[in-house]
Amino acid sequence: MHIAEGFLPPVQAVAWTVASAPFVIHGARCIIRQVREHPETKLLLGAAGAFTFVLSAIKLPSVTGSSSHPTGTGLGAVLFRPPVMAFLGVVVLLFQALLLAHGGITTLGANTFSMAVVGPWVGYGGYRLVSRFTTNTSPAIFAAMFLADLSTYCVTSMQLALAFPDPVSGVGGALAKFLGVFALTQVPLAVAEGLLGVLVFRVLRTVASPELVRLGVLPMPVDNSSGGRTGAPPSSQRGF
Rank of each mutant, 00 (worst) to 15 (best):
F164K: 13
V200Y: 01
G125F: 07
L45G: 03
G109S: 05
G180C: 04
G126H: 08
P10T: 10
G172A: 12
H69I: 04
E40H: 11
L189V: 14
I32F: 13
L79G: 06
G123E: 05
P233L: 12
G49R: 04
A4H: 11
V35Q: 10
A50L: 15
T152D: 13
L44K: 06
A163W: 02
L75S: 00
N224Y: 15
L100N: 07
L93I: 08
M220R: 15
A161S: 12
G72K: 00
S131T: 10
A19Y: 10
I105V: 15
V203M: 11
A116D: 05
L189F: 12
G180I: 08
D166V: 03
A144G: 04
A163L: 00
G72T: 00
G126N: 10
T112N: 03
H26K: 13
F95V: 12
G6Y: 07
S157Y: 10
P167Q: 00
R128L: 15
A176Y: 10
F113C: 06
G180T: 04
A4D: 13
D166R: 01
I105T: 09
G216K: 07
T152H: 00
F178Q: 12
G197P: 09
L8V: 11
S114R: 01
Y124G: 02
V18F: 11
F142P: 08
F113P: 03
I105E: 01
S209C: 09
P167A: 05
E211M: 12
F178R: 10
Q12L: 15
W16K: 03
F23E: 05
H2I: 05
G231A: 01
F95K: 00
L160K: 10
L215T: 02
V35K: 10
L204T: 01
T52H: 13
A28W: 11
S67H: 14
Q34W: 08
G170H: 01
S56R: 02
N224V: 15
P82S: 06
S169Y: 13
K177E: 12
R132D: 08
S67N: 12
S67I: 02
G65H: 05
M85G: 00
S68N: 14
F133M: 06
T17I: 00
G231N: 04
L160V: 11
W121E: 00
G231V: 02
I58R: 05
L196A: 14
L88Y: 00
N111D: 11
A174F: 04
G197Q: 10
A86N: 08
I3E: 02
V24R: 01
E37Y: 09
L195R: 02
A148G: 10
T230A: 15
L94E: 05
A97H: 08
G216H: 07
R238P: 03
V198A: 08
A116W: 06
N224F: 15
V78I: 13
Y124P: 09
Y124T: 07
A77G: 09
V122R: 01
P70S: 06
V217Y: 07
S151V: 05
L60K: 01
R29P: 02
L43Y: 13
V78Q: 01
H38F: 11
G170A: 06
A116K: 05
A101Q: 15
T137I: 15
G126T: 06
P39W: 05
I25P: 04
G27L: 01
V35E: 09
Q34D: 10
P188A: 09
F113S: 02
L88T: 00
